[in-house]
Design a protein around this nucleic acid. Structure first.
Lengths: 345, 345
DNA sequence: CACCAAATTGGAAGCGCTCCCAAAAGGTAG
DNA sequence: CTACCTTTTGGGAGCGCTTCCAATTTGGTG
């Protein structure tokens, strides 16, 4: 390894090219190219000489030139169909973005983060994507979103969906957590803790996450499930509060509450406290996501932690396979979540 | 404007190049280049013909080729010297990242988000940056950070600091909010609301934000400032709680509290409640940042909203000037914050 | 109408890389 | 030692753009 000191003030010299390396190593340009692209079909001795020259010169590949020659753009789009300003409040989004960026940087590529808030944005985005500005796309869909999906499917652009794309489960590649199983786990835990009435504040039921978390809850509760104690929310803090107020009106003796996201759970706890209930003594509460809100709220939430990072890595791996041309049948992957016990239940 | 329908399924055809446009418009390649780069020194009639050809073909410039020809990389680094996992919990970071990305996308460029957690990462990052992988850098420093700053200063890489770089105020370009003035504003408001003892939980005093917010507080309180009612925190929820517990021990009759960040304020409110104090009846609390935590906590926080988006845009503008070669004297810019009244004070 | 300067134009050269092909080197078997 | 096959190697061509510079056109003037 050569330190920056040894090679002087790098910035003041012309950046070395592949030809400089070839000259110094006494080989042809093609050979250097082969070495920096895996070193296959190059004699070990030659490879070492080339690597040494690379170190001495402090050479690193010019991505623009590589992309131009390869006919690639060197960037991947991460598309979120949600209101942009909500975006960064969603802790999952941040972790996804961070994991993608980091991973792509390792291969000299970039992540392009984009929202598609309304139909117009969606159309221009569709054009943009289909027209070769990116090598592939990762779709974080917050609602069911056929138009963009169909558009992309027709465009041949490789892409992978994060989460289960309702209605396209069999046609597309996707990576998702098992919402139903996760909800089953946390609600079973809750049901084991308390006797009496258990209610739930759901996510939006037009999303697969919202729906499956409710399914898991229903399954876990079995006979104890009460259809009248289901309030539907929209992932927002406010909807968590209002949903809880509704449930409390319907069943003042409420003992347990499954809230389909931590943020909504924060709202729920606020509503419970306002109604004079202690958590978890009077009403036990469990959330979902293990987001920052989970520990910000008092008492800290018992919740489900999702393997976001793993989801991201797998999605990217699958996408890379498809970009490389292994465009066989769609690939589907389901990962499981983990119960995190804190003090709210 | 040509819709995607008119030009057929774009994805299946070869992407048009500048030569295709030149041929269709009946002009030379150079002329097309001139048109897509501002259209200077091109006769209006010719310019229109070229633009029409561009529309018909659905041409858009190939960034890799442009970057290669221009000797630019087409990316800007956003560097944060903080623990990566805290990163996305910081609401300002998210807004910065989003504003940068969006703005850069407009000019076909990319944002590269990077952390520099320890000295080693910092060194390799320094090499990376100095070696021409990016066109410029935006530095979000959470602590005073001389090594990287000096390294970059020596490297000729254009960069702009977000926040005031302690010890480098005169040597570098930076954009910051006026922490002192903002703290003065919110503490004055608090002081007008309550009589009696007012304390503060500060940010880390080795950062300019931490220090200046304390200065502003001291200034606003004047004679009422009590040096014994200053607890130092580190921006974390926990430090907010612990600092508040300390203040309460020193002054059980505490009536007002300025907490230097909303997240810490959430911890403070938890501590106050645990100690049996009502907010704002017994103790009025004000925060700083207007982050998501401000409305998540109960009661919602009175706090200062910072012009993050404007800061981001100005920083990028200054950076672009410097990249373009207008590397005159360093540029400094200070923006003001705005009081947001809610129910905590 | 001739002349000149300024504005406009075309296209060659070159950015740094990958991909490919032909040539050279190396191995193996008879 | 030769013939043949495989592996390795060098370097030309080309990716799509910008940046010149030289050539042409334009427009104004005497």
């Amino acid at each position: 390894m050569v330190t920056s000191a040894e090679r002087g003030d790098a910035s003041s010299r012309r950046r070395p090219t592949i030809d400089d390396v070839a000259r110094l190593a006494g080989v042809g340009r093609g050979t250097v190219s082969r070495v920096i692209n895996g070193g296959h079909n190059v004699r070990p001795a030659v490879r070492d000489a080339v690597n040494q020259a690379i170190d001495i010169l402090g050479y690193s590949v010019n991505q623009s030139a590589r992309n131009l020659a390869r006919g690639r753009t060197g960037s991947i789009a991460y598309i979120i169909s949600d209101r942009g300003d909500r975006l960064f409040e969603d802790p999952n989004f941040g972790l996804f973005a961070r994991t993608f960026s980091r991973q792509l940087r390792g291969s000299g590529r970039h992540l392009l983060i984009t929202t598609a808030e309304d139909e117009e944005e969606e159309n221009s985005l569709g054009d943009y994507l289909a027209f070769g500005h990116v090598d592939g796309a990762l779709l974080g869909l917050t609602r069911d979103h056929e138009p963009l999906l169909q558009r992309l499917q027709a465009s041949r652009l490789p892409f992978v969906v994060l989460g289960k794309p309702l209605g396209f489960e069999n046609a597309l590649s996707w990576v998702a957590i098992d919402d139903e199983k996760a909800a089953f786990t946390v609600v079973s835990y809750l049901a084991g803790k308390v006797d009496g009435a258990i209610g739930t504040v759901t996510g939006p039921l037009h999303t697969s996450s919202g729906r499956e978390r409710l399914d898991g809850c229903r399954l876990a509760l079995g006979d104890r499930f009460r259809p009248d104690l289901v309030a539907s929310g929209d992932w927002s803090l406010r909807s968590g509060r209002e949903g809880t107020e509704l449930l409390l009106r319907r069943e003042p003796g409420l003992r347990g509450l499954f809230v389909a996201s931590d943020l909504m759970a924060a709202g729920a706890i606020g509503a419970l406290r306002a109604a004079g209930r202690r958590v978890p003594e009077d009403v036990a509460v469990v959330g979902f996501d293990d987001s920052a809100a989970a520990t910000m709220v008092d008492p800290a939430l018992t919740t489900m932690r999702n393997p976001i990072e793993q989801t991201a890595l797998e999605a990217l791996r699958i996408l890379d396979e498809r970009i490389a041309g292994d465009a066989g049948a769609p690939v589907r992957l389901v990962l499981s979540s983990e119960l995190v016990k804190r003090s709210s239940a």
